[in-house]
Each structure stands twice: as structure tokens, then as C-alpha cells.
Amino acid sequence: MDAVFKALADAGRRKLLDALHRENGQTLKRLCDHLDMTRQAVSKHLSLLEAANLVVTVREGREKRHFLNPVPLYAIYTRWIGKYEVNRLSALSDLKNKLESKRKE
């Protein structure tokens, strides 16, 4: 999970994930066409994203296509966001119960 957070801690890499979300399966060339980054920077970011399993690559002939893999993001969602959301919601319902029971007293 460290690799995923590290990969997400960069605006350029988040932009690349957004670009793949808009159009999945892009080649390096196509990704470079739309982004204000050098080919070297895009390539470096992509290999970091791939190491974190956020991007999956497939070779098709001479081309390498890049696919967004949201599975690790889902793991973060269930581990962090889901957990705290549940706590926040139960705190609210506790508060509601407390206020309502006071009114009855």
C-alpha cells in the first residue's frame, strides 16, 4: 500500500491516471500528446505507476498500451475511507440518540 500512496503523491502521476480514466489503453505517444510533460517524465511516471499496480501494460505488436487498474485504489477506499466514514456516521447516530433520549427525560 506504501507504493500506491507514493505513486499518488504526485500531481503529474495523478494527471496520467485521469488521462487513462478518460481513455483507457493509451500508448506512451498518445499520452504524451495530451500532457504537458516530456516523454522521459511520462515514461518514468508510468513505470512507477506500474510498480504500484495502478497501471497495467499490454504489448500489442510494437506498441505498449497502458490500462488504469483501480483495484489498489479500491483497497485504499475500504481500508481508509470506508472505515472512517462508518465511524463518522455512527458518531452522528450516537449524537442523535443522545439528544433524543435527553428530550424524553
Binding site: 483507457n24 489503453g25 499496480n53 497495467v56 490500462f67 488504469l68 487498474n69 483501480p70 483495484v71
Partner: peptide, 8 residues
């Protein structure tokens, strides 16, 4: 249209 999901 295609997606590829990978998990270890």
C-alpha cells in the same frame, strides 16, 4: 472497449 484488472 476493454479494461484490465490485476490483483496479486
Amino acid at each position: 472497449s476493454e479494461f484490465i484488472y490485476v490483483t496479486f
